[in-house]
Amino acid sequence: MEPAQRTASKRTEVQMARSMCWHCQSEVTGEYFCQQCVKVQPLSKELDYFTCLGLPRLLTIDTARLEAKFYELSRTFHPDFFQNKTESEQGISLGNSALLNMAYRTLKDPIRRAEYLLQLEAGSAKDIRTPPPADLFEEILALQEDLEEFRSASSQQEATSLGQLRTKLQADQASLEQRQKDMEARLFELFMKWDSFQDRTGQDDRLRAEKDPVLKEMREILSNRTYLRSIVDDLVATTG
């Protein structure tokens, strides 16, 4: 489901917390280790996940490359390989590994990746709730009623109406899941569109004007999708 990597990016150097080695104070020129004293260096807390994993800031990514980089960096930072080192180095290994794991978890999943990029571009998406579109809202209201009816029927053990309601709810579930699929398909279209902006250089204002509606629509879909998901989860939990 991941479109292949289209844009070749130039290699971005991973930022370190500071340019001076915490141990020997010499300038750090190596990527993760001081070349003077060979001590591991802490990754910058401000490092964004794309840079951390050596990827361009795009929504369609090469997952094989992501995994390979994750494995490579895990071999570099994992606490297993710092057992014989000093306590400070062990601490850095732990912190770097935790950051790396979080970065990988976020970028691996397309939805989390999009949420993260939105947050980088324009603040957190989670804090902004866009109301669902009217037709979806109506559909969900009707569903909530059916769910209530099902719950009361199941507590009174009404076998026949329970069976009918279950069939109805199952149909509702299928329709909602289809909606979710449609949303995701649209989201991936937007991913491609967003990424195509990154190749372009031009008038900043004009690019911004094109970018903003895409950002806005992505945010709406992500918000609605979360909403839809909680409804479907509730549905599955009730009907079993």
Binding site: R75, D80, Q83, N84
Partner: peptide
């Protein structure tokens, strides 16, 4: 064995 530093080939995540 991994923790002793004897091998870097294997890594458990």
């Amino acid at each position: 064995d991994i923790l002793s530093g004897a091998t870097q080939d294997l890594l458990l995540l």
